[in-house]
Amino acid sequence: MSYLTHFGLEKAPFSLTADPHFYIDFIPHKEALEVITTALSFGESILKITGEVGTGKTLLCNKLQQELSEQYHLCIIDNAYLSAHELRCLLASKIGIDKADFDEQFLLTEKIKERLLTLRDEGIKVLVLVDEAQALPDSTLEALRLFSNLETDADKLLQVILFGQPELDLRLADPKLRQLRQRITFSYQLRALSEQEIEHYISERLKQAGYRGARLFSTRVCRKISQASRGIPRLINILSHKILMLSYGEQHYKITNKLVKEAVADTEDAYALPTLTGWWLLLLSFIVLNTTLLLWWKGLL
């Protein structure tokens, strides 16, 4: 018997895989999707979505694949260490160019342009989704920019969405990449979730996993998860998963503060929760400070 059976779940609710079936339409992701779909409809060449580690960039990327697969020929670039030539070869492969044409770099670029023109004439739009873009070499980022230059009098032959950590913005600030930076016409930065969003997030993930019982995670427990996770979805998943495992290990259904503290203590990147002793010391310091100020104001010190 696993904790899934214990809680009446059909599948793991807090898996770390970026499963679009677990996508929840929170404000950060909803706004990012709106920015992307609007920019794509305008024909913009390069878009950028950034966010801290664990804020759901890959999940958003997978959701876009699901949403846009009927409108675009999608080219997914999920290897962040490709050289510029390897990028050309991968793109060529994804748009149907024979591998026998991969050897000569200059000719390959021309063949990619010819193939993109053919696809355009067939009414097929090409969209390149690049995950972990902050890790791509400068030469590879420059190759992407050059591909974004390919166009007819009326249309871009392909469009690019870069997904990356905040380090991508730091790299784009380098004068060497200023031409690429100027090509990025729309961008959005994913934020962490608020306490209220976390409470809804946990509830929805459980519901999508098949849970139909009484409420498991109270507002108080969610508040502690919010403090420890800093609102980062990946950490919320890790903590929630560990809490359910601990509850199952004790063979009960109640999620207690004790279980939350144990899960937090076992998670390296989680912020330690303030202890009761710490709160008392803070309160005592506040009282002493205010008493001292009051006595000073009355001239007794």
Score class of each variant (00 low, 15 high):
S2W: 03
Y3H: 10
G8V: 00
A12E: 06
L16D: 11
A18C: 04
P20A: 02
P20C: 03
D25K: 11
H29G: 06
E31F: 13
E34M: 13
V35G: 02
I36D: 01
T37Y: 04
T38G: 00
A39T: 05
A39L: 01
A39P: 02
L40H: 06
G43H: 02
L47M: 12
L47C: 06
E52A: 10
V53Q: 02
G54P: 07
T55N: 07
L60S: 08
S69C: 09
C75V: 15
I76C: 07
D78G: 14
Y81F: 14
S83W: 13
H85K: 15
S93A: 13
D98P: 00
F102Y: 15
E104R: 12
Q105Y: 05
K111R: 13
K111P: 02
I112Q: 01
R115F: 08
L117S: 07
L117D: 07
K125L: 06
V126P: 12
A143I: 04
L144K: 03
L146F: 06
F147N: 04
F147W: 09
S148K: 05
E151V: 01
T152H: 07
D155S: 09
L158E: 05
A173Y: 08
P175F: 07
R178C: 07
R178N: 11
Q179Y: 04
R181E: 11
Q182A: 00
T185K: 12
T185W: 09
F186D: 01
S187Y: 12
S194F: 03
Q196L: 15
R205Y: 06
L206K: 02
R220M: 12
V221W: 03
M245D: 03
Y248V: 01
Y248N: 08
G249D: 00
G249A: 09
E250S: 05
E250C: 00
N257Y: 04
V264I: 07
A265F: 00
D269L: 13
L273C: 06
P274G: 03
L276K: 15
L282C: 12
L284K: 13
F286G: 14
T291D: 09
